[in-house]
Design a protein around this nucleic acid. Structure first.
Length: 626
DNA sequence: CAATCGTGCGCG
DNA sequence: AAAGCGCGCACGATTG
C-alpha cells in the first residue's frame, strides 16, 4: 500500500494510494516497521546546497510512505528521522544523506545497497546501479524514466507511484547480499561483512565532508596561478629560442621567420610544447635515442639545454593546467566552498576524489606547499591536520612479522638505514655515502626505492632503469635484499600464490576486504602469459598492504567523527588524503583538539596493527600544511 | 564535430 | 615499455 503525505490538492483524490497526515503516517510506520526501513529522496538536482529536496520516501516491502516536502510541514518527520534507531537502507545513500543534512537530519544507522554491492563484487566488472540489482536479485525491472519527470512537472500521480517503488525492494536486496556474503564465507572462508559495516559507517563521514566542503583562499590561489603561468610563458620563449639556435632543429623554424628581423609577434614558432608527439620528434632530431618523453627519460638527458628547459616547462605546464584557475569554477555559488565528490571504494579499498580531485593537490617541490596553503580553515577556526608516518612499512612489518623490520621499528631505528646496511653489507654510518654506480644517490636512497618498490613487485628492469645501473647489478641488489629479509619475501610470495590460485586477494583481518582480479579468467586460459601473471602477482602483493592502510584510515575517520559528535567538539573533518586527516576546529580549542585527533588516529591504528608502534603527527595551523 | 584513446604527471 | 601499486585530469591525436 502506498501512502501519500501531501497538501497538494491535485494529488489527493487518487485511488492508487491513500492520503494521510504526517502524524498518522509516522504512527503507522512505527507500528509496521520492526528494525529496518528503506529510504529514498527525490530532489530538484544534484547539489544539496543549490537544489531543493522534493520528497522523502520511507518504506517496507508492503507499505510505502511518500512525503511531499514542498507542501507539508515536515518538522515532525525531521524529528522522527533524527531520533530513530532503526536501520535506514538506501541505494547510494551518500546522495540522500547530504540532502537530509540540508534539512538538518542525521540518520544514526544506515545500510547502502550500492556500497555493499561494490564490496561484494569488488574488482568484478558488474554493474551496481539500483535497476541492475533489482533485476539481478529479484528479477524485477525498474523504470527509471520518471525521475526527470519530477524535476520538470513536480509531483504527479505517476511520480508518487514511482517514488514509492524505489523503497520497496531494498530490504530484500540487502537480504540477498548478506546471503551472498555468507555463501562466500562458506565457500572461500572469506568473511567481508566487517568491510560492509565499515563502509556503511564511514559513508556518513564522507557525506558530511562533501556537504561541508573546504574553503579555498581565492586571492591567494590566483596569485599563485598567475606566477605559474608567467613562468610558463618565459620558459616557452626560452625553448623557442634554443630551437632557433640549434642548427639540427632548423626545420622547425619557418624560412620567413628566420629572415624576419622585425618580428613583433609574441611567438614566432608554431611548436606546441604540450604535444608529446612534437616533443619526441624534436628530441629525436636533436640526436636523442628515446622512445618517450616522460620525466624519467628526460632526467637522464639533462646535458641538453632543451631537455633541461623542457623538464621545467612540463612541471609548470602541469601545474598551470591541472591546478590552475579551473578550480575556481567549481566553487559553490552558495557556500563559496569546494564540495568534491568522493568515490568511496576503489579496488584496493582506498577512496578516490573528483570535481576537483583533492587527493592530488601538489605538495612537493618549491610550489607544492604554497599551493596547499591556499586551502584554509574558516574564520575563527584553525586547520588541525595530521598524518600517519610510515604506515605501509608498519603494515609490512606487522603482517610479515619479519624480525629485522619488526625490531627496527620497535627499537625506533631508521628502517631504511638498517636494511640498507644489510643489503649492501656496509656499516650503518656509511649509508648516506654516495652509491658508487650512481653517485647522485646515496645507498640509503637506493634502499628506499627498494623498500617501497620491491614490496610491490618491482623487477630488476625497473630498478636498473631507475638507478641507472645494469640489470645484473639490480638483480644482485634485489637478491641481497631478499636474503636479508627472507620473511618479508616469503610473506609476499605467499600472497602472490594465493592470488594466482584463487583469482582474488583479501586484506588482513578483521576487515577481509575482497578484491577479485578481472583478468583471472584470461590467466587461466593461458597460464604462461607472463604479462597477466605478473600483473596478478603484483596486485596480490600490493592490495593487502594498500588496502589495510585504507581500512584503517576509514576506521580512524569513523572514530574521529564519533568523538566530535559525542563530545560536541566545534570541529569538522575537512578532507582525508590517503594517510592524512584534516579538520578545522574553533580557535580556542584547537590545541586540545590536536592532541585528541592524534590520540584517536594512533589508538585506532593500534587496534589493527599490534606488532609495531604507530606514529601520527598532527599540527595546528591556519591552512593546509605538508 | 563529438567521442574515445594515448601520454604524461599530480598525489599517496 | 611488459616488467612497482592505486587513482583523476588535461591535452593532443585519432576515430567515426
Amino acid at each position: 500500500m502506498i501512502y501519500l503525505i501531501s497538501e497538494n490538492n491535485n494529488l489527493l483524490a487518487s485511488s492508487k494510494y491513500i492520503s494521510i497526515n504526517t502524524s498518522k503516517s509516522l504512527e503507522l510506520i512505527d507500528k509496521c516497521v520492526l528494525n529496518e526501513i528503506q529510504i529514498d529522496t527525490e530532489t530538484k538536482g544534484l547539489c544539496p546546497h543549490l537544489n531543493d529536496l522534493l520528497t522523502i520516501q520511507l518504506g517496507t516491502k508492503n507499505n510505502q510512505f511518500v512525503f511531499d516536502l514542498t507542501t507539508i510541514n515536515y518538522l515532525e518527520l525531521i524529528n522522527f528521522l533524527n531520533c530513530s534507531d532503526k536501520l535506514f537502507i538506501a541505494h547510494n545513500i551518500k546522495f540522500d544523506y547530504k540532502f537530509l543534512l540540508s534539512i538538518e537530519v542525521k540518520l544514526k544507522n544506515v545500510y547502502c545497497t550500492q556500497l555493499a554491492e561494490q564490496v561484494i563484487n569488488n574488482g568484478k566488472e558488474e554493474p551496481f546501479n539500483l535497476a541492475s540489482l533489482t533485476q539481478k536479485y529479484l528479477n524485477i525491472s525498474l523504470n527509471k524514466d520518471v525521475r526527470n519527470d519530477i524535476i520538470i512537472n513536480g509531483l504527479t500521480e505517476k511520480a508518487v507511484i514511482y517514488a514509492a517503488e524505489d523503497v520497496k525492494h531494498l530490504s530484500l536486496i540487502k537480504e540477498k547480499q548478506l546471503e551472498k556474503v555468507n555463501n562466500d564465507y562458506i565457500k572461500h572462508s572469506v568473511n567481508y561483512l566487517e568491510t560492509i559495516n565499515l563502509e556503511n559507517e564511514v559513508v556518513k563521514v564522507f557525506s558530511l565532508m562533501e556537504f561541508n566542503g573546504v574553503t579555498l583562499d581565492v586571492e591567494k590561489w590566483k596569485t599563485i596561478t598567475d606566477k605559474v603561468s608567467e613562468s610558463l610563458f618565459k620558459v616557452e620563449k626560452d625553448l623557442d629560442e634554443s630551437v632557433k639556435k640549434e642548427p639540427k632543429l632548423n626545420k622547425y623554424v619557418p624560412k620567413e621567420k628566420q629572415l624576419n628581423l622585425f618580428d613583433f609577434e609574441e611567438r614566432d614558432l608554431t611548436i606546441n610544447w604540450k604535444s608529446s608527439k612534437q616533443k619526441l620528434s624534436i628530441l629525436k632530431d636533436l640526436g636523442l635515442n628515446i622512445k618517450s618523453t616522460g620525466a624519467e627519460i628526460l632526467q637522464k638527458n639533462k646535458k641538453y639545454e632543451i631537455v633541461k628547459l623542457l623538464l621545467e616547462y612540463n612541471k609548470l605546464s602541469k601545474l598551470n593546467s591541472s591546478f590552475g584557475n579551473n578550480i575556481l569554477d567549481i566553487i559553490n555559488k552558495k557556500t563559496n566552498k569546494i564540495h568534491p565528490d568522493y568515490w568511496q571504494i576503489v579496488e584496493t579499498g582506498r577512496i578516490s576524489c573528483k570535481n576537483p580531485n583533492l587527493l592530488n593537490i601538489p605538495s612537493k617541490g618549491e610550489l607544492g606547499p604554497i599551493i596547499r596553503s591556499a586551502f584554509t580553515s574558516k574564520k575563527g577556526y584553525k586547520w588541525v591536520g595530521g598524518d600517519y608516518s610510515g604506515m605501509e612499512l608498519a603494515i609490512i612489518a606487522d603482517l610479515s612479522k619479519d624480525d629485522v623490520w619488526v625490531s627496527a621499528l620497535n627499537n625506533g631505528e631508521d628502517l631504511h638505514s638498517k636494511l640498507c646496511a644489510a643489503t649492501f653489507n656496509i656499516p650503518i654510518d656509511k649509508v648516506k655515502e654516495p652509491f658508487p654506480f650512481n653517485p647522485s644517490l646515496t645507498y640509503r636512497d637506493v634502499q628506499k626505492t627498494i623498500n617501497f618498490g620491491i614490496a610491490y613487485g618491482m623487477s630488476e628492469f625497473k630498478l636498473s632503469d631507475r638507478l641507472n645501473i645494469s640489470k645484473q647489478e639490480a638483480l644482485d641488489i634485489i637478491n641481497n635484499f631478499k636474503n636479508n629479509v627472507p620473511t618479508v619475501s616469503e610473506f609476499l610470495e605467499k600472497l602472490a600464490r594465493y592470488g594466482l590460485r584463487k583469482g582474488f586477494i583479501i586484506t588482513p583481518p578483521p576487515f577481509n576486504r575482497i578484491r577479485y582480479f578481472s583478468d583471472f579468467n584470461n590467466y587461466k586460459l593461458n597460464e604462461t602469459n607472463e604479462k597477466i601473471k605478473g600483473s596478478i602477482e603484483r596486485k596480490s602483493y600490493n592490495t593487502p598492504i594498500q588496502g589495510m592502510n585504507a581500512d584503517i584510515i576509514k576506521a580512524a575517520l569513523i572514530n574521529v567523527q564519533k568523538e566530535i559528535d559525542e563530545n560536541n567538539w566545534d570541529a569538522e573533518i575537512l578532507l582525508s588524503v590517503y594517510d592524512e586527516i584534516n579538520t578545522q576546529c574553533i580557535e580556542d580549542k584547537a590545541e586540545e583538539w590536536k592532541v585528541k585527533l592524534e590520540e584517536i588516529m594512533i589508538s585506532t591504528a593500534k587496534t589493527y596493527i599490534k606488532n609495531v608502534p604507530i606514529k601520527a603527527d598532527c599540527y595546528v595551523n591556519d591552512f593546509w600544511k605538508k
